[in-house]
């Protein structure tokens, strides 16, 4: 067993006190590696909570710089960060919360050519992307590399999330076969989003990662959790792993990754 310093025992005391986490669970967290895809609305709260929880290695991917319109919901970025790289801004906040962690930044677009190599270094992936092609790319790459992930999406007042354990539970493509046609679904920049729901959903994703690592509770596997913040109605929809899924089914037709066309509208 690892010898915790007095400072670590103080810092993580509320985890250690939890029956389902305890000393052993905190050790697992400190040894765990989680990759966050997107340092935006979902990735920011997830990053802060994972850093606070003491996840030993955190990777964060994003190619963008902080803009003033991000600040309404991307909670790790501050006004002084406008113009800075999002991954560096998020890394600095994680370090301020918990200086002892190994934080890896990837200022790039995830693509078919680079994603598998990047995710291979991690135990769990949080999808906080803002576009369908990347969501499918992350799902397919995680299935191929056998890495569990949390899918998440938000728009207007709505959020949805599911947790995927490849080979065991329904993947994103089991239920949603392919990206919707361009402009069938508006982006946050077109349709708007209530800032606080980014925190609601991103922290659910962080909690799923912490549960996966520690083994506490049961995951949102084979379950799509949706909520609408106008009514605060939460709903769980049961999903099934599909034998004919093109990526995780019995006879997969997607056996290598290809970059889809960017189908999101580029309105600002």
């Amino acid at each position: 067993m690892r010898d915790f310093s007095t400072e670590e025992l103080d810092r993580y005391s509320r985890h250690i006190l939890l029956g389902d986490v305890g000393v052993e669970g905190q050790e697992k967290l400190l040894a765990a590696r989680v990759l966050i895809v997107g340092a935006g609305g979902l990735g920011c709260p997830a990053a802060l909570y994972l850093a606070a929880a003491g996840v030993g290695k955190i990777g964060i991917v994003d190619n963008d710089v902080v803009e003033i319109s991000n600040l309404q919901r991307q909670i790790a970025h501050f006004t002084d960060d406008i113009g800075r790289s999002k991954v560096e801004s998020a890394r600095d906040k994680m370090r301020q919360i918990n200086p002892g962690l190994d934080i890896e930044t990837y200022q790039l677009f995830l693509e078919a050519a680079n994603i598998r190599e990047i995710i291979r270094d991690y135990d769990f992936v949080i999808d906080g992307t803002d576009n369908f092609p990347t969501k499918f790319l992350v799902n397919d790459a995680c299935v191929m590399e056998n890495i569990p992930l949390s899918h998440g999406g938000i728009l207007r007042f709505d959020g949805q999330t599911m947790t995927i354990v490849p080979g065991q539970s329904s993947c994103y493509r089991c239920s949603f076969r392919s990206p919707p046609p361009p402009d069938a679904v508006p982006t946050c920049s077109q349709a708007g989003v209530l800032g606080a729901i980014a925190g609601m959903l991103g922290t659910i994703q962080a909690a799923e990662a912490l549960k996966f690592i520690t083994g506490a509770g049961s995951l949102l596997t084979n379950t799509l959790l949706t909520f609408n913040a106008k009514t605060m109605a939460f709903r769980k929809i049961n999903l099934k792993k599909q034998d004919d899924c093109p990526v995780c089914g019995k006879k997969p037709t997607i056996t290598e990754l290809v970059d889809a066309e960017q189908t999101t509208c580029d309105l600002k």
Binding site: F4, L9, D10, S13, I16, L17, G22, V23
Partner: peptide, 14 residues
């Protein structure tokens, strides 16, 4: 409290 329980749990975990 609660650090006495934290230390007790650390003791038990070993």
């Amino acid at each position: 409290c609660p650090m006495n329980m934290v230390y007790t749990k650390v003791g038990l975990s070993k």
